[in-house]
Design a protein around this nucleic acid. Structure first.
Lengths: 94, 94
DNA sequence: TTCACATATTCAAATAATATAATATATGAG
DNA sequence: CTCATATATTATATTATTTGAATATGTGAA
């Protein structure tokens, strides 16, 4: 049981970002669909636009998801491989 | 992107319990050592007894760790297999 | 029983996370 | 340029988490 504060803090930060039902749903959905724009997620989740956007920014700031602009839309997809594995582990296949 | 609230909430609850530097350290330490009493963890972590105990109770209430009393001491160990895999994934081998 | 030790629980204060309305920015069409 | 649409940011109120001192409980020894 060592004192590697930094790695524990870093792992905790990533896990906290994932540990929310809406963000789990976003990540799972992105994995199933491959990628997705914000409006579509917003419809599926039935949440205010700013709520969805803030969840997405949180995931993006940690490198969990990445974005690509396509005209007016911003397309999100899951980037972090460990997170992909984690979701498979906790939310089943696909 | 379905609406399986229940499973997302349940997964989020477990992940939230893990997503804290102290609790990560506890779980990692338990995995490395196999099992451990509270006083030892308290020393390693250099935190007040009630703080450590509260973190442990949170992990225990979700079935992430389990306990066995041995005289005055209570021995903790990691019970949840998915959590073991998650820790290996995020905090390296062992 | 009484005592010492190990652990658990309660309470209160401090801090962090969440949700949403309002506002701002970016892009493409006309 | 102006407008409409898609997305991001800010401000703030609400709620949840974390912490540690104080207190309580459980166990074994004498």
């Amino acid at each position: 049981m060592d004192n590697n504060f930094k790695s524990y803090n870093q792992a905790a930060e990533t896990l906290k970002a994932i540990a929310h039902p809406v963000r789990l749903c976003i990540i799972k959905g992105l994995l199933e669909k491959g990628c997705c724009n914000v409006s579509y997620m917003q419809e599926c989740l039935d949440l205010p636009q700013s709520t969805v956007s803030q969840h997405l920014q949180r995931l993006r700031s940690l490198g969990i998801v990445e974005t690509e602009r396509k005209g007016l839309e911003v397309i999100y997809s899951v980037k972090d491989e460990k997170v992909k594995q984690l979701i498979t582990l906790f939310l089943g296949e696909k």
